[in-house]
Amino acid sequence: MHYTICDVVLDLIHNSIEAGSSLVELSLIEDAKTITVVVKDNGKGMDAETLKRVQDPFYTDGEKHTARKVGLGIPFLVQLAGQVQGAWNIDSEPGIGTTVSFSLPYKHIDLPPVGDIPSCVLSAFCFSESADIAVHRFRDGSEVYSVKRSEILDAVGDLTDAQALLLAKQYLESLET
């Protein structure tokens, strides 16, 4: 089980990147009652059979870990949504992409902390694959900021340098204010 909602988000983005996406779009939508997250990618997608099986913690495509029989990312999401009476959905089409979304009520006592959003976004930007990642942050119905991995790379260069990473983090934190 992931500790924060941000951890779930990072895990989903990593799935999208590993699915060979060139663009991943993350929307973080907060209002007084709920937090809604949408991760949309243009990766390889899944057929209906695979889509059913990803909820099973003992299913994995076996490509990356041939000797391993677990895949916990989506099961963690399903478990989280279930424990707080939230909702989740996955739409996917082979060759087109996948959209994973979930919505969680703030008032539920078992809702985990949201987590550190700038840190989560920075981590998402740091996976070495070339996918661009666009983040859209909404509060109470209006977009408060958006940021793209490509524009950060353009401004600070490669995100493997500690100083570049710290500056990028500072920038992402400033957007949250």
């Binding site: 992931h2 990072l10 895990d11 981590s123 500690a162 100083q163 710290l166 983090k169």
Partner: peptide, 26 residues
């Protein structure tokens, strides 16, 4: 930073590492 790493707090580890690398002038 797989599912297992994220669940165990790898994001905090990553943040601390970059701060420590910078703080040690590396």
């Amino acid at each position: 930073m797989g599912t297992c790493g994220i669940a165990a707090g790898a994001k905090t580890t990553f943040d601390t590492l970059i701060k420590a690398v910078d703080a040690n002038g590396l």
